[in-house]
Design a protein around this nucleic acid. Structure first.
Lengths: 231, 231
DNA sequence: ACAAAAAAGTGACAAATGTCATTTTTTTAA
DNA sequence: TTAAAAAAATGACATTTGTCACTTTTTTGT
C-alpha cells in the first residue's frame, strides 16, 4: 500500500482533488508553486478549531479524522478523510476560522494550498467554482443525514451505520482494521465507549460480525444493513 | 405589519436577498423577468423533499419552516425562514432534488427564480458566486452547531436555545407569539412534545419565562442563557 | 354561539443510555 | 523482555427521556 506518493506537480498527481480536473495546466502549475507539503505522525493536529483558514488542505496519503469539539470536551467525529479529499470547513467563506479540528489517524502526508490562490481560481474559472460549490454541498448533505441518524436512530442502528461506512466508503472491503478505537467509535456514533463495546459484543454474539480488538470482519452484511435501516 | 410588499422589480425590492446587491441592474432585470410569485396559506407545502430543485426560493413575506423528514415520520426542523432569506438546499448543486421540505407557518409570499438563471449569474459574476458560497457556508456552519446542541445538550439547554433563537434571531424581542406549537418546538429541539410542555412549565415555575399557550415573554434572559450554556 | 377538532397538559411507567468503579487485555517504550 | 500505560471489557446502578392513556383547554368552522 505504501507507494511513493510524493508528487511535485499537481498536473500529474494521482491523488489530487477531483475538482482539479477543471483547471488548465497553467492553473495547476500556479497551484503547484503555492503548494506546501507536510508530514504528520499519528495523532497529530493538522489544523485546530479556531485557527485561521489560510490554506485548503488536501490529503495525499494516510487517514485523518475531522471532529467538532463539543461540550465538556466531548468530540463529534463528522468524517474520516482519505487521500483525494479537500478539507476546508465552512469558515473559509465566512469568519476565516476553522470550526472543526483535523487530526491524523495514521502517518499522513498533506498538501497545503494558499486559500488566496484557490479563491483567485474561483474568480477566473466557473467550472472550478461550481465544482467547489458541489463539494461543499455534498458535505452539507452528509451533515443532514448525520443529524437524522444521530438524533433518531438507536445505538445499534448508529453503530451499524458506522461499520457500513467503514466497509463501503473507507475500506471498500468487508474485512478491515478499525482505525478508530472504541472511544473514537463512540465519538463517531454519539455514544459512550462502554455502549460501543456492548453493542459490538451483541453483533458478535449475533454472528453479524467477528472482531478481535482492532480487526473487524462483517459476516452478514444484509443483517447489518437491516439493523442500520431499522434505526 | 401588512404592507403591500409586492414588488415587480428586483432592483427596488425591499425584501430581496442580500447577495443581490452584487448584481448589476441589468442582471436584476433579467431576474425580474424570470421571477414567479406565489402565495401560500399557513401549513401549505412550498416545496417537498424529493421534488426537483428547479427554482431558488426567496421569501417576500411571512414565515416558513424547513425540516428534514426523518425516521418513523418524525421531522427535524432545521431552520425558520424569514423574508430576505434564500432557500435552496444542498441538492441544488448535486442531485437536483430537495432534501428537506419547506412549509409555510403563516401566510407567505414567495418568489421563485429559475435555477438556470441563478447558475448563469454565478458564471458571469464572481462576487455573486462568492456571495452564494458564503450563504451556503453559513448554513452549513449552523448545522455544525445544531448537531452539537441536539446530540450533547440536555433537554432544558436545547429548549433554552430555541427560545433564545426565536427571541434574538427571529423576533428581535423578548416577548413574542410562538409560531411553533409544542409538537413543532419538539421537532426543533429533538424531544417529545410532552417533554417540551414539562420544561416550559419548569421555566415558568423558575420565573425565567412567562407563557400562556402561544405567547411567551422572557423574564430572565441571563438565566435562560445560562441554561443554554450549561447544556 | 356551539359542536367538533386540534392542541395543550398530566401522571405513571418503561426503555434507552450514561456513569462509575474495577478488572482484564493489549500496546508501548525503556 | 518486562514494567508501565493505554485500551478494552464488565457489571451495577442512576439518569434522562420517551410512550401511552387520558383530561382539559383552546381553536375552528358553520
Amino acid at each position: 500500500m505504501e507507494k511513493p506518493l510524493v508528487e511535485n506537480d499537481c498536473r500529474t498527481c494521482m491523488n489530487r482533488w477531483e475538482n482539479f480536473k477543471n483547471l488548465s495546466d497553467d492553473d495547476l502549475l500556479l497551484i503547484s508553486k503555492h503548494r506546501y507539503e507536510a508530514i504528520f505522525k499519528p495523532g497529530e493536529i493538522i489544523f485546530k478549531k479556531g485557527s485561521p483558514t489560510s490554506s485548503a488542505i488536501f490529503l495525499v496519503s494516510g487517514m485523518a479524522k475531522a471532529f467538532l469539539e463539543g461540550l465538556d470536551n466531548k468530540n463529534i467525529i463528522i468524517s474520516l478523510v482519505k487521500p483525494g479529499m479537500m478539507v476546508s470547513g465552512p469558515g473559509t467563506f465566512g469568519d476565516m476560522r476553522h470550526h472543526f479540528t483535523l487530526t491524523s489517524l495514521t502517518d499522513v502526508k498533506a498538501c497545503f494550498i494558499d486559500m488566496q490562490v484557490i479563491k483567485q481560481l474561483i474568480h477566473t474559472n466557473n467550472r472550478f467554482a461550481e465544482g467547489l460549490i458541489e463539494d461543499i454541498s455534498a458535505k452539507s448533505l452528509m451533515m443532514y443525514y448525520k443529524l437524522i441518524a444521530l438524533t433518531q436512530k438507536k445505538m445499534p442502528g448508529r453503530l451499524a451505520d458506522a461499520l457500513l461506512y467503514l466497509s463501503n466508503v473507507i475500506y471498500d472491503s468487508d474485512e478491515f482494521d478499525l482505525i478508530l478505537n472504541r472511544q473514537e467509535l463512540g465519538e463517531f456514533t454519539n455514544m459512550a465507549k462502554e455502549s460501543v463495546i456492548r453493542i459490538l459484543k451483541d453483533l458478535e454474539d449475533g454472528a453479524v460480525i467477528s472482531s478481535n480488538c482492532s480487526r473487524v470482519k462483517i459476516l452478514d452484511k444484509t443483517k447489518l444493513q437491516m439493523i442500520s435501516d431499522n434505526g
